[in-house]
Write a protein that binds this DNA or RNA. Structure first.
Lengths: 167, 167
DNA sequence: TTCCCTGCAAAAGTTTTGCACTACT
DNA sequence: AGTAGTGCAAAACTTTTGCAGGGAA
């Protein structure tokens, strides 16, 4: 059989804003999960969640705060952080710690993926490679450890920045 | 031929204290590189570097500060951070950002490696897997990006913690 | 002797918390 | 009505910086 490791392929996903309908759906999901867990839905939580899902992925708390305040200038940082924590508990977002000091938050999608981060322009590309996933299990087995989660981050220059670097 | 990807194998390295002779050697190297770069050698820098290399890898600034002050109670946090930055500029240490808020510092070794971090006891195991390295280059090529550096971190339970978790 | 280095304290940047008040359910 | 949520400000935590005094070359 000719299939080798390379055939596994790497897929990259586009990140971007969700359609208004999708945002509505996410908010509805948030409501449900809050209720399940005994928390309340509030106007602020809805505003924050809506802005978060509209913006797309990899926002910092600061960016989110600025955007939310355009819509609702009363919201404080504390509520932003508390709501981000709630969204995390509801499995609707992941918290990422790339090399910056500040955390970035990403809407939880269906499937696991890893990240490439451009060191020049900050662009983040998500990708998935099955062979890479499998190898990490192999490594874990060889180390005798139980793998709960993992993080693969590639840093470098994205294709656009490579071009401008050549000038 | 029976050699397949698996044969690449995973090697894990033991991290630990350096012998006094090795520490001396590292300090001498530090002196040389400071001079090359137009910096001075001082008692504090020597103390900090000595304690850093004696302790072994993956220390936080706080741990280093506490240990250094056992030897020299006069040293301030600022000098710890400034000296860590110098050691980094001298290519004698790497700064790592695992999931904690605080950075951890590791003596620069000869070869690149990745990390497994035990989420229960905090133990850090270094490992190297050539196939994993190669695959990352493949992914970078498929994404059309230039790879400058990368980070692979596995999180889970180390063998000891797996055992005690079974009780 | 000349700067660089050091320690202290204060600042900076991100995230959390205490408290009185507000508003969901 | 009752309890959880909110905003503000202050605290917490890690790391950096300004400045006056001290020490290496």
């Amino acid at each position: 059989m000719a299939r080798n490791a390379e055939t596994t392929g790497t897929s990259s996903t586009a990140v971007g804003r969700l359609s208004p309908a999708k945002v509505e759906q996410k908010i509805a999901e948030f409501h449900g999960r809050l209720k399940e867990r005994g928390f309340k839905s509030t106007g602020q939580r809805d505003d924050i969640a809506a802005v978060f899902f509209e913006l797309g992925r990899h926002v910092s708390a600061e960016e989110l705060y600025d955007e939310v305040r355009k819509r609702n200038p009363h919201v404080g940082y504390a509520t932003i952080y508390r709501t981000l924590k709630l969204l995390k508990e509801c499995d609707l977002l992941y918290e990422r710690h790339f090399d910056d000091a500040q955390a970035r938050y990403e809407a939880a999608g269906e499937q696991h993926h890893d990240h490439f981060i451009c060191e020049r322009c900050g662009r983040i590309i998500e990708f998935k490679n099955d062979e890479l996933e499998r190898l990490q299990q192999v490594v874990a087995r060889e180390l005798g450890v139980a793998l709960l989660r993992h993080k693969v981050e590639l840093y470098g220059l994205c294709s656009d920045c490579r071009k401008s670097a050549r000038n």
